[in-house]
Design a protein around this nucleic acid. Structure first.
Length: 695
DNA sequence: AGCACGCCGACT
DNA sequence: GTCGGCGTGCTC
């Protein structure tokens, strides 16, 4: 076969793609014997190479032709892994990297290879961004290269060629607005405007005001001559703050770094921040690294939301990155939400942040009335019974619809797949032979075991003897169908995973939503009522955060309901004595977070202790645990069997250290990982600081 | 990761 | 004598 490509017409698409790629990107010359730059001839480079370049910088010679462009922060290509043949350096794979410094001389004893190419002189990796990425990598036992991938967006040449507008003018100091509802609110704004760095854990009042409060905090920071950054958990909340900022400051005063923009627009906006044209940035998770200059304020909204945790290694969390930035860049912090996380409560308790909350009287004025009801309380009405609505919930929904407002029904996610449990006492229905979960292919279909497949024709509950079964959670779709029958002639709208509604009209309707997908009522009036169904399903999840998370989901829904004075009612179907239920009834998220924090402290759980998980094959986990040199008062929990991965047996161990030793734990884990690579141990161990799924 | 260098057993 | 085993170490 010819190697010259005459058979190109028959080539596979991948080959064509490869050819196009190689043709498009000009091959950098070797710069063999080229003159080197006279001034600062050494470029220190962070090479964007996977795990194996264990966090080292490499020095390269700067050819004279690149002396001007090869500035710190610039993207470059370098040859890596070359070999020396007959005194000449040959080959070496091209890798992308960033210049971190220009130096007079290198401390590397051998000869330096020249930079292959300056991809772009744009100084994207600014010193503060580099410092932040280094700090985040250390905090999470990850590599700088991994964090850089999260922090610096891919280059888009056209976007880079466009000039950014001149720096935006500073807005005037805003009036306190909704912040005057919080005793410490006006002072908080004034401190930001005055160049101070106040740090607050903000319990946001229910209602539609919070995006405007965030916008005012941003405006105050800009007015004081500094920059501001806001990170929110999803696109809908970004859009709300985006609108509030535009209303308050006008067009073009902030950059919205949304994920759905396309690479060019995204990079264009990122550059407008990096170049200092725009002083405020908002966005979802990835925006946590936005290179806002002279940062005066970082805002994180709803820091308990799971999407603030980055799924990519080393899994940095928006709140933690925000706190690291605030410390490093002397910025203020606003950690806000309708709920308060345990981490927020801890920041208050240690004195690092101040609580920013309204007094009880104000809360009473704006919060809806909350009632609890157990789901044993069945309604007499046949339709309500079919919809499994307790009578209190049924009445509340009926009255709310009659009053002319929409009613929100929150249903835990699960779809149609029924996981069965005892209809009376909620004990999961299990197979008598293998303890596997019992399932039914359809409602009224015969029972069988989900593990061994055996039939279970005459099940009864081993705990209470009941013969009644029910699906553990009825999904949003089926709830919608059944409620539609229960309330004929009332429109039913659903919002969930696949189709999330941003808003619903302020008219009678049943709005069925999974937690976190609740639409906002147009016009700012709010729902007339909300019914929070199947609370037990949220509360009984085997997760350390189940209580905290349930309260967060409930408060987020309840915050969309009208104040009690305007008839707003929330009915939560759950055991009334449960702590999150109590906290919802009293609308006391801060108190709840404090109690949770006490409990975590007692049990030596995070965030009072710092934890890390190590997962992999039993041999690999044992190997790492044998190598690691942990701080003396560290605990090793496990290893225990974990769910198989691609059919491979897996184990997981948890490492735990007391407060203040998180950095030591991360360092020990990183050292052990490096040692394993050096010893050429084949199987990798997945290390995760602050694991999210601990039962 | 690749890929070379390096120091001990059976072969043309 | 040499070819080659993959242990060990490096990549600017």
């Amino acid at each position: 076969m010819s190697s010259t490509g005459e058979n190109g017409a028959a080539a596979e698409p991948e080959q064509l793609a490869f050819i196009r790629e190689t043709v498009k990107r000009a091959k950098p010359r070797t710069w063999r014997g080229a003159k080197r730059a006279e001034h600062l001839p050494v470029a220190r480079v962070v090479v964007d190479k996977g795990v194996l370049t264990i966090d080292k910088f490499f020095d390269y010679e700067v050819p004279a032709a690149m002396a001007e462009e090869a500035q710190p922060g610039a993207r470059v290509r370098v040859r890596f892994g070359a070999r020396v043949v007959k005194g000449q350096r040959e080959g070496g794979e091209l890798h992308d990297g960033f210049i971190v410094a220009r130096l007079e001389k290198s401390d590397f004893p051998g000869p330096l290879a020249p930079l292959a190419q300056v991809l772009s002189p744009e100084p994207v990796l600014t010193p503060p961004l580099l410092r932040l990425c280094r700090t985040v990598a250390d905090r999470y036992a990850g590599t700088l290269a991994d964090v850089l991938q999260l922090a610096v967006p891919p280059r888009h040449a056209k976007a880079e060629a466009e000039p950014s507008p001149p720096p935006r003018p500073r807005p005037p100091e805003p009036a306190p607005g909704g912040w005057s509802r919080y005793p410490a609110g006006p002072d908080f704004l004034a401190a930001l405007a005055g160049g101070g760095s106040p740090r607050a854990v903000w319990t946001a009042l229910p209602g539609p005001g919070w995006p405007y409060e965030i916008a005012r905090a941003v405006a105050a920071t800009l007015a004081g001559g500094r920059g501001a950054l806001v990170v929110l958990p999803d696109g809908r909340s970004v859009a709300r703050v985006d609108r509030a900022l535009t209303e308050l400051l006008g067009e073009g005063m902030h950059a919205t770094l949304a994920a759905d923009l396309g690479p060019r627009e995204r990079y264009r906006r990122w550059l407008s921040v990096s170049r200092g044209s725009v002083h405020a940035a908002i966005g979802t998770r990835a925006a946590m690294f936005a290179p806002v200059r002279d940062l005066g304020l970082v805002v994180v909204w709803s820091d308990g939301d799971g999407s603030h945790s980055d799924p990519r290694a080393p899994h940095p969390h928006v709140r933690e990155v925000a706190l690291l930035r605030a410390a490093e860049e002397s910025a203020g912090v606003l950690l806000g939400g309708h709920a308060v996380t345990v981490e927020g409560a801890q920041l208050i308790r240690t004195g690092w942040a101040r609580p920013l909350a309204a007094d009880r009287e104000t809360v009473r004025q704006v919060a809806p009335r909350v009632r609890t009801v157990t789901d044993q309380d069945q309604h007499r009405d046949a339709a309500a019974q079919a919809a499994r609505l307790p009578s209190v919930a049924w009445e509340a929904a009926r009255e709310a619809l009659a009053s002319g407002g929409p009613v929100l029904i929150q249903v835990p996610r699960r779809g149609y797949v029924p996981r069965l449990a005892c209809g009376r006492c909620r004990t999961p229905a299990r197979c008598r032979r293998c303890e596997g979960p019992l399932e039914a292919a359809a409602a009224d279909a015969p029972l069988h075991c989900g593990w061994c497949g055996g039939a279970e024709p005459d099940w009864h509950c081993p705990e209470c003897g009941s013969f009644r079964l029910r699906a553990q959670v009825i999904g949003a779709r089926r709830t919608a169908e059944e409620l539609g029958k229960a309330f004929p002639r009332v429109p039913v709208r659903t919002s969930g995973r696949d189709a999330v509604l941003a808003t619903v009209p302020a008219e009678p309707a049943l709005v069925i939503s999974t937690p976190g997908a609740e639409p906002v009522v147009e016009g700012g009036g709010g729902y007339a009522a909300a019914v929070l169904l199947d609370g037990w399903a949220l509360l009984s999840r085997p997760d350390l955060r189940a209580g905290e998370e349930t309260l967060r989901l409930w408060l987020a829904a309840a915050a969309l309901v009208k104040p009690a004075a305007e008839g707003g009612t929330v009915v939560v179907v759950a055991e009334p004595t449960a702590r999150p239920v109590q906290a919802l009834v009293r609308w006391d998220p801060l108190g709840h977070a404090g109690l949770e924090l006490d409990e975590r402290a007692q049990l030596h759980f995070p965030p009072v202790s710092r934890m890390a998980s190590v997962a992999g094959s039993p041999a690999a986990v044992a190997d790492l645990l044998g190598l690691i040199r942990l701080p003396s008062d560290a605990d090793v929990l496990g290893p225990v069997p974990a769910p198989a991965l691609r059919g491979e047996e897996q184990e997981r161990a948890l490492l735990r250290v007391p407060p203040g030793q998180g950095a030591a734990l991360a360092a020990a884990l990183k050292a052990a990982q490096i040692a394993r690579i050096a010893l050429r141990t084949p199987e990798t161990v997945r290390v995760r600081i602050d694991p999210t799924d601990i039962g």
